[in-house]
């Protein structure tokens, strides 16, 4: 995915994401045990593992949406650096009764993004023809692309993405991977949980085992 112009792209961040001995429970059951991760700027970690192995739970904990039972998570050394993290979950956080642009504008307001970012995010996932369409009238794949465009709106140094390509066609998957590549060039860190074989250069793999959940 790396392109020739990669060295000329400006580095915006130097995102160092660090998790130490993270353990998380859901409903009184220990799902994730003793996970440690270190990401330097530009690193990608691909999280794999069978259903129920705790990929989503781990990502939500890393995003600060779940309190871990133990362990520490920090971004650039700051424990409260979680504002520099964006989590894109399996749901797309978009409202079906709002149009594509209304959803994008709402996110832009929440993330404090300039208004011009809306058009940028829309174009990034080829959603321009659907700008005024209600999100409820989008296909599953288009709706997923709308959900992923939040990554472009928010412009956070650390991306935590859950099953990004599950409902995407090959071209859209490649589009997503190109955005990941651009994010790396800018010095961002990325963690992707997936069942798909994503072709990402020099990505590390972390396989969660079933036994932690059992």
């Amino acid at each position: 995915m790396e392109r020739a112009d990669s060295d000329t792209a400006a580095r915006r961040w130097s995102a160092r994401f660090c998790a130490r001995g993270v353990g998380v429970s859901r409903g009184g059951v220990r799902i994730v045990n003793d996970i440690s991760l270190d990401l330097d700027p530009g690193d990608v970690v691909i999280l794999t593992g069978p259903n129920g192995s705790g990929k989503t739970t781990l990502l939500r904990a890393l995003a600060g949406l779940l309190r871990p039972d133990e362990g520490a998570i920090s971004v650039n050394g700051a424990e409260n650096g979680l504002k520099s993290v964006i989590y894109c979950g399996p749901q797309n956080a978009a409202k079906t009764a709002l149009t594509v642009d209304e959803n994008l504008r709402f996110w832009a307001a929440l993330y404090g993004a300039p208004g011009g970012r809306v058009a940028e995010a829309r174009a990034a996932f080829n959603l321009d023809p659907y700008a005024d369409r209600f999100a409820g009238a989008l296909s599953t794949g288009l709706f997923r692309r709308l959900g992923l465009s939040r990554l472009i709106i928010a412009q956070k140094p650390v991306w935590l993405v859950d099953e990004p390509t599950a409902s995407l066609d090959a071209a859209s998957s490649a589009l997503f991977l190109s955005h990941v590549a651009a994010h790396r060039r800018q010095g961002g860190a990325t963690i992707i949980a997936t069942h798909d074989a994503l072709d990402i250069a020099s990505a590390r793999r972390l396989r969660l085992s079933e036994e932690a959940a059992a």
Binding site: G89, A93, A94, K95, W107, L110
Partner: peptide
């Protein structure tokens, strides 16, 4: 909560 936007609202 059901469509995931509560996560975004809380996180931001």
């Amino acid at each position: 909560r059901e469509d995931g936007s509560l996560d975004v609202i809380i996180a931001t």
